[in-house]
Design a protein around this nucleic acid. Structure first.
Lengths: 230, 230
DNA sequence: GCCATGGCTATTGTCAATAATAGGGGCGAT
DNA sequence: ATCGCCCCTATTATTGACAATAGCCATGGC
C-alpha cells in the first residue's frame, strides 16, 4: 500500500463525532435561548446551519425529543418544546424526590478519593464561571453533580437523575449566565463537599434539594411574566 | 375522481402502525423468551422475520435499546441484553422507590371513578389470565398498574415508573405464565382496590412494593441456577 | 511452529432520490 | 359575499443502493 485510500482521522471528524457535534450544537441553540420555545425546527434549515446531512439532523431531533426538549409531530415537524408552570412543578417534584433519595444513599463520611475528585471538579467549575464560558459552566456543573450522585452506588438511579437534569436544562440555562445564581451555586457546592466529610446525610440531602430551588423559582417567575404582559 | 389512487386503509397497516407492530413483535420475542439473552439480532434476519424494511427494524432496535432490553454495539450489531443479579437488584431498588413514592401520593380514600375503572381493568385481567393469553395478561396487568399510579397526579413520575416497568419486563414475563404467581398477583390487585377505599396510604405503598417481590426473587433464583450448573 | 499481514465476508452506517402528507391559498359555485 | 373544494407547496417519511467497518481465516515470512 503506497497511497493510503483516505487520510486516517485528522480533518474528518469521523462521522460518529459529527453526529455528537450536531446534537450538541442544536441542544445549545435551544437551552441557551437562541431558539425560542415553539420555534419550528425545519430539517433543511438545520442541515444548512450545521452543515450536516439530513440523516444526522434527523437523529439529533429524535435524540432531543427523547430528552424532552424537542417536540415532534408526525408529518408536521419539530418545534422547541415549551413547558407550562404546572409541568415545570411536576418535573421538579420528581427531580427533587430522586435527588433526595440519591443523596441519602451516599455513605458518610465520604472517602477522600471522592472529596478530592469533587474538589477538582469544583476548581474547574470556578474557572469556567470566571471565564463566563457558558458551555463550560454547564458541562463542569453537570460533571460535579454526576460525580456526587454516582457515590450513591446505584447507576440506574443516577441515570434517571441525569434524565431529569437534562429535561430541566432549558430552565436552568439562564442561571448559568446569572452572576448572582452562579455565586450561590458555587457556595452550595463547597458546602456539599464539607457535608460529605461529616455524617449528617439528611442535611446533605436537604442542601441538594435546596440547590435547585433558585433556578426553578426564577424560571417560574420568568414564564409567568412572559405570559401576562403579552 | 372516478378511480381512487390507493385504497384508503384496510389492507395497508398505514406505516405508522407497521412500525408499532414490529416493535411489539420484537419485544414479545424477547420478553417471552423466544429470543434468549445474548442472542444476536441481525437486521436482515429481522427484516425477513417481520416482513419489514430495514428502516423499521432499525427504529425498533433503537427503541428497545432505549427501553433497555436490547444492547447495541457500534458496527457490531444488536443482541438481547442480559442483566446480572446485581443489576437486577439495583433496577428493582429504583423501581421500588418510585413505586412507594407514587403510592404515597395517591389521595385516600380514592374517588369512586378510580375504583370503578380499576375493578373493570381487573375484570379484564382475570379474563385474560383464565384464557392463558400471555400477551393479554401482560397488557391488562400493565394497564391496571398504569391506571393505579396515574392517580398520584404526576404524569412524569408515572412515565418514569413505566420506564422501569418496561425495563423489568423480561424478568416479569415468566410469572405471567406461572399459575401460582398469577393467583397471588390477582389477590394483591383486589387488596389494592380495597385499600384504595380506606385511608392507610402506608399500607397501600407497602403492598405495591410487596407486589413486585415474587417475580424479582423468582428471577434471581432462576439466573443463579442458570449459571451454576453450567 | 508462530506471528504478522492481507483480503474476504458478514453486518451495520450513510446517503440522496422518491413517495406521502398536511396545510394554505385561490377559484368557482351558490 | 361566503362557503366548500381542489390543487400546490413546504415538509417529513421511506426506501434501496452504496460505503464503511470489524472480525475471521488463510497464507506467507521468519
Amino acid at each position: 500500500m503506497t497511497a493510503e485510500p483516505t487520510l486516517p482521522e485528522l480533518q474528518t471528524p469521523s462521522r460518529e463525532e459529527e453526529q455528537a457535534e450536531v446534537i450538541r450544537r442544536l441542544e445549545e441553540d435551544i437551552i441557551f435561548g437562541r431558539f425560542a420555545p415553539g420555534l419550528r425546527l425545519v430539517e433543511d434549515t438545520l442541515m444548512q446551519r450545521y452543515g450536516a446531512s439530513r440523516h444526522f439532523v434527523r437523529q439529533a431531533l429524535f435524540q432531543l425529543e427523547r430528552q424532552g426538549i424537542v417536540l415532534r409531530e408526525k408529518n408536521v415537524g419539530a418545534t422547541v418544546r415549551f413547558y407550562s408552570a404546572d409541568e415545570v412543578r411536576q418535573i421538579y417534584e420528581v427531580r427533587e424526590m430522586l435527588t433526595r433519595q440519591a443523596a441519602l444513599m451516599i455513605a458518610l463520611p465520604a472517602p477522600d478519593s471522592l472529596i478530592d475528585q469533587l474538589s477538582e471538579l469544583q476548581r474547574h467549575y470556578c474557572l469556567k464561571a470566571d471565564a463566563q464560558d457558558m458551555r463550560g459552566i454547564h458541562e463542569t456543573n453537570d460533571a460535579f453533580h454526576l460525580a456526587l450522585f454516582s457515590a450513591c452506588g446505584n447507576p440506574y438511579l443516577v441515570r434517571s437523575l441525569q434524565d431529569y437534569m437534562n429535561l430541566t436544562l432549558p430552565m436552568r440555562a439562564k442561571n448559568l449566565a446569572d452572576s448572582e445564581g452562579l455565586a450561590l451555586s458555587r457556595r452550595q457546592h463547597e458546602l456539599m463537599i464539607e457535608l460529605l466529610k461529616g455524617r449528617d446525610s439528611w442535611a446533605l440531602a436537604q442542601l441538594c434539594v435546596d440547590h435547585m430551588q433558585y433556578s426553578k423559582a426564577d424560571y417560574l417567575v420568568r414564564i409567568s411574566n412572559d405570559k401576562k404582559p403579552q
